[in-house]
Amino acid sequence: MRSHRETHLVARAGWLRAAVLGANDGIVSTASLILGVAASGADRPALLVAGIAGLVAGAMSMAAGEYVSVSSQADTEGADLARERAELAESPESEHAELAAVYVTRGVDAETAGKVASQMMVHDALAAHARDELNITDITTARPVVAALASAGTFTVGAALPLLLAVLLPMNMMAVGQGGGSILFLALLGYVGAKAGGAPPLRPVVRVVFWGALAMALTAGIGRLVGTAV
């Protein structure tokens, strides 16, 4: 019989989430910032200063935020594993019963569940409990550095796109060109993210375009009000 090799896209979930979040935030926040400043009547140098400042601040914020939040997850996982390791050393019989009960709830009969639990604990008791009792696997394990780098890197790439538009567009076309170009960038991001995750692209594209356009419209409106008042 020919072997059947499966590739599951869920393995990409961790870094893909951070990457899409970073790129989306980079496009939306930088484009919104540039549109808001442009709507206030500022000139091109002011737009570029605002855009560059937004890019640097946003990339650092994304990196720090992802690292701190995912590190908290990693700390929780570490604490759970340490507790499980101690319980395995102190009361292996109780831990065997817990693991067997997990398998019973998944449809295995009690006798078979006991045998499976015994075999799994002989092979690697901590890994078995981490996976089947705590739901900690190689796919879900927190990786703070990877998440931070992915978010900061993709934020920078995303933010560079509206910043490039601010450099190239004529000032009399800045609002329309920046808004339209950024919406196209968001649509492309939604499409690429959906394809990378193996999902149909329509809903992700509509989702990122809608929220991105709303953010840019609100920011431009506030910029126009402030510029008129000043």
Score class of each variant (00 low, 15 high):
residue 16 L to I: 01
residue 16 L to F: 05
residue 16 L to A: 10
residue 17 R to M: 06
residue 17 R to G: 08
residue 17 R to I: 10
residue 18 A to I: 02
residue 18 A to K: 08
residue 18 A to H: 04
residue 19 A to K: 03
residue 19 A to T: 15
residue 19 A to H: 06
residue 19 A to L: 11
residue 19 A to Q: 06
residue 19 A to P: 05
residue 20 V to Q: 00
residue 20 V to M: 02
residue 20 V to H: 01
residue 22 G to S: 07
residue 22 G to E: 10
residue 23 A to Q: 01
residue 23 A to M: 10
residue 23 A to I: 06
residue 24 N to M: 02
residue 24 N to H: 14
residue 24 N to L: 12
residue 24 N to S: 13
residue 24 N to D: 14
residue 24 N to T: 09
residue 24 N to P: 07
residue 25 D to I: 12
residue 26 G to W: 12
residue 26 G to H: 12
residue 27 I to V: 15
residue 27 I to P: 13
residue 27 I to H: 12
residue 27 I to S: 12
residue 27 I to Y: 15
residue 28 V to K: 04
residue 28 V to W: 07
residue 29 S to E: 15
residue 30 T to F: 01
residue 30 T to R: 09
residue 30 T to H: 05
residue 30 T to W: 00
residue 31 A to W: 13
residue 31 A to M: 14
residue 31 A to G: 15
residue 31 A to F: 14
residue 31 A to V: 14
residue 31 A to T: 15
residue 32 S to T: 13
residue 32 S to W: 07
residue 32 S to F: 05
residue 32 S to I: 12
residue 33 L to C: 14
residue 34 I to V: 15
residue 34 I to C: 13
residue 34 I to P: 09
residue 34 I to K: 07
residue 34 I to A: 15
residue 34 I to L: 15
residue 35 L to R: 08
residue 35 L to S: 15
residue 35 L to N: 11
residue 36 G to K: 01
residue 36 G to V: 14
residue 36 G to L: 11
residue 38 A to L: 02
residue 38 A to E: 06
residue 38 A to R: 08
residue 39 A to V: 02
residue 39 A to Y: 00
residue 39 A to W: 07
residue 40 S to A: 15
residue 40 S to R: 06
residue 40 S to N: 09
residue 40 S to P: 09
residue 41 G to V: 03
residue 41 G to Q: 03
residue 41 G to L: 02
residue 42 A to G: 04
residue 42 A to Q: 04
residue 44 R to L: 09
residue 44 R to D: 05
residue 44 R to W: 02
residue 45 P to W: 00
